[in-house]
Computed example of a mutant assay.
Amino acid sequence: MQTIPRSALILGLAGVIPFAWGAATLLSDSLSAWGLAMLGPRFVGPYVQLFYGSVILSFMSGVLWGFATKATGGQATTGYALSVIPALWAFFMTGGGPVSAGMNLIFGFAGLLLLDWQFWRWGLAPGWWMQLRGLLTALVVACLAVGVLL
């Protein structure tokens, strides 16, 4: 096992902040009221989680595409095809209400973890990749679950 580079870990954890903020504003009425007054309705509760979650799934499609560039032949073709799934999932599956969109984001991040594992197994992702992705996925899914279960 390789150690996660400090910068990747810090930036990855920073990327969880909007999910955690959304969960916190769902759990605290006073924090939600403050966020609503200071930031606006798009940046509290499930709204920040759902919008940001769609952005991150799309971003991760780009990361996987980058990994696919390391492959050749049929593996490259498969990698490119798999890499677009998270973005398409976000585009097609986050409509509807906040509960169904939140559930679909949870499924999307779980599916992304499987794709991460496959790219890692192929040797296209860094050795430490699954340690980072496992941690970040667990945190994101926990935050999204607050929005789905409340």
Rank of each mutant, 00 (worst) to 15 (best):
Ala23Lys: 00
Thr72His: 14
Val141Thr: 09
Ile10Val: 15
Trp34Asn: 00
Arg6Phe: 14
Ser32Cys: 11
Thr137Met: 04
Leu132Trp: 13
Met103His: 02
Ala20Arg: 04
Thr94Asp: 05
Gln75Ile: 13
Leu132Arg: 14
Phe43Trp: 15
Leu144Arg: 03
Leu57Asn: 07
Gly12His: 12
Asp29Trp: 04
Leu64Arg: 14
Leu36Lys: 08
Ala142Trp: 02
Leu144Thr: 01
Ala14Lys: 06
Gly127His: 03
Met38Val: 10
Thr25Glu: 01
Gly134Cys: 08
Ser58Asp: 05
Ser83Trp: 09
Arg121Ala: 11
Ala125Arg: 15
Ala138Gly: 07
Ala68Asp: 04
Lys70Met: 05
Pro41His: 10
Asp29Cys: 00
Trp65Ile: 12
Phe43Gln: 06
Arg42Thr: 06
Met38Asn: 08
Gly147Asp: 02
Val55His: 06
Leu36Arg: 15
Ala138His: 04
Gln2Arg: 10
Ala87Asn: 01
Pro86His: 08
Thr94Asn: 08
Leu150Ala: 05
Gly66Ser: 13
Gly123Tyr: 03
Leu136Asp: 07
Ala68Thr: 09
Ser30Arg: 12
Arg133Thr: 06
Ala33Lys: 04
Leu36Ile: 05
Pro5Asn: 08
Met60Leu: 15
Ser7Met: 07
Pro5Gln: 07
Gly74Cys: 09
Trp128Val: 03
Gly79Gln: 10
Gly40Arg: 09
Leu132Met: 14
Val55Leu: 15
Gly15Phe: 07
Trp122Ala: 07
Gly62Arg: 13
Gly108Leu: 10
Gln2Tyr: 00
Trp128Ala: 01
Val99Ala: 13
Gly111His: 07
Gly22Arg: 01
Thr72Met: 12
Leu13Glu: 02
Leu26Tyr: 01
Leu136Pro: 13
Gly35Met: 06
Thr77Ile: 11
Phe43Asn: 11
Gly35Phe: 08
